[in-house]
Design a protein around this nucleic acid. Structure first.
Lengths: 283, 283
DNA sequence: CGGGGACTCTCGTATTATGAGACCATTCCC
DNA sequence: GGGAATGGTCTCATAATACGAGAGTCCCCG
């Protein structure tokens, strides 16, 4: 059983979340309330983190993220994290499914950036980490476009044009719009030789904790390796793996603070069994 | 006496530093050793942080900064931190010295970016947070240029030109070079109406924990308000305040882990770096 | 000048986090 | 294939940490 331990650390990050989000002011009492901590505890935690340089007390009712924390994130990026977290999964996926697998994200110009790949024996796609390709004609790209907010998706569609790279490339704006809606509904995309001849690809989204599409995972292969009959089972497997990745990057943990020592404060709690631990005998 | 408490948090950040710096590999045993922690403790801390999304275990011997931490830093920046941390100090400084005080940093193009200011009654300098001005002719700028590494300083000097803004502006490359060296030696800069007529300015560097100049603090006023006889005492006061700011942003804390329960393991380790700065006698 | 908000501190002790050591899974290398 | 090396996981009694309550300080605002 996954046992989240070291509660103080959890509390510390709860406070940091408060500071970073800054909602509702960041005074000690307000943060204590928001994190369900005692003022004493919140204060202890904050002064500790201040001494560590993690937090700066910039004035009454004002705390800010400190240089120590900034330094931790300076070299880190979501992209590189995703690449390294996904690497073992991509590798397993490629081995078991005998496909070439990719992870990619959309950049600010609607280009697909490939972050990691794991090729099966005879890979033909020349993707390298950092490479960028057009979004409209690949599995990854279609999944990522389908995950955009409606206004952004429309702005992409309006921009065009969508030159044909093969005879199957979707080039008409309205066809592409329809395709993206279908991808949304299905939960995965299928690229049937739209970018390269004889290259098919199934792709699924990777969501963050709020459900937004932050990346995509794909498996590709030649038409022979990937008959259409295989698509739906592959999509299922990919979805499973995408969820694994998502679970790694965005764990959904609800650590509970609250010790028995605490006075019951929320009155709506029914105090049925006032003392369930029936007076433990003092040693 | 500032009492750093909640040791687990300190240990957690020690581990995070290891991960972020990545030196010497980031396997559990190596980090435990580097942070002087038991494997059990390091493991507990790491799994806790993994459950929180602060850290991701990307593979054997590989840990990475997680999305939770990335999210904390997304909106934060050194500049805004500096601005808010310095605000109360600028305000006090302006009040007690009856000057206009500024904080600024150098951007990638060697321009001074003003981050915060606090004006005395009748301010004349039209600086606003975010404004940029040339570096060669202001107190802040000269301090910041003097704090550059020698190659970068020379590349700035080589670039030129340095148009005269007043009759006193230093416009010759070799004069400026000499001036910057002098600023380095003295530890502060004096701008004697080099940017605006009748505007003098004293500026001092703000250092990070490693001694690098990361920002500068200045006080300015008219020639009448700031006779040359005042310069050195003002520089002293500014230096004191700069150290206050630096201490707030880059606390030098040496929290000691190690409980008495621990077996003495490495006797040669003596990491108790005593505060070298004139220690105030403890009460 | 009094009230309130934000913060600080102390103290006894309940609760937490600890270290040692055993154990498991992979990988590497003869 | 065996066996060491590396990296990680788990349990348990208990030392020591971090806890909550409440009282106190400081400062601003009316």
């Amino acid at each position: 059983m996954a046992t989240p331990e070291i509660k103080s650390v959890g509390k510390a990050f709860a406070l940091l979340d408060c500071i970073a989000s800054g909602e509702g002011g960041v005074s000690l009492p307000s943060m204590a309330k928001r994190c369900d901590l005692t003022m004493a505890t919140a204060h202890r935690l904050l002064t500790t983190m201040e001494a560590l340089g993690v937090v700066v007390h910039t004035g009454p009712g004002e705390y800010a993220i400190g240089t120590r924390l900034l330094g931790l994130c300076r070299e880190a990026s979501f992209e590189s994290l995703l690449a390294s977290a996904a690497a073992p999964i991509l590798s397993r996926l490629s081995r078991t499914t005998r496909t070439t697998s990719h992870i990619g994200v959309l950049d600010s110009e609607f280009m697909v950036t490939y972050l990691a790949r794991c090729a099966s024996a005879h890979a033909k796609i020349p993707t390298l980490p950092g490479n960028k390709l057009e979004a409209y004609c690949s599995g990854l790209g279609k999944v990522l476009l389908a995950g955009l907010s409606m206004p952004r998706r429309e702005s992409y569609l309006a921009e065009g044009p969508f030159p044909a790279l093969t005879s199957r490339t979707i080039i008409a704006q309205e066809d592409l719009a329809r395709e993206l809606s279908a991808v949304c509904r299905r939960g995965f995309a299928f690229d049937d030789c739209e970018m390269f001849e004889d290259l098919r690809c199934v792709a699924v989204p990777i969501h963050d904790q709020s459900g937004r599409v932050v990346a995509a995972l794909s498996a590709s292969g030649s038409c022979r390796e990937m008959p259409k009959s295989r698509v739906s089972s592959l999509a299922e497997e990919l979805t499973r793996q995408a969820e694994t990745i998502s679970g790694k990057l965005f764990p959904r943990t609800a650590i509970n603070f609250r010790t028995s020592r605490t006075k019951q404060r929320s009155a709506h709690d029914k105090p049925t069994h006032q003392d369930d631990r029936s007076g433990s005998p003092a040693p």
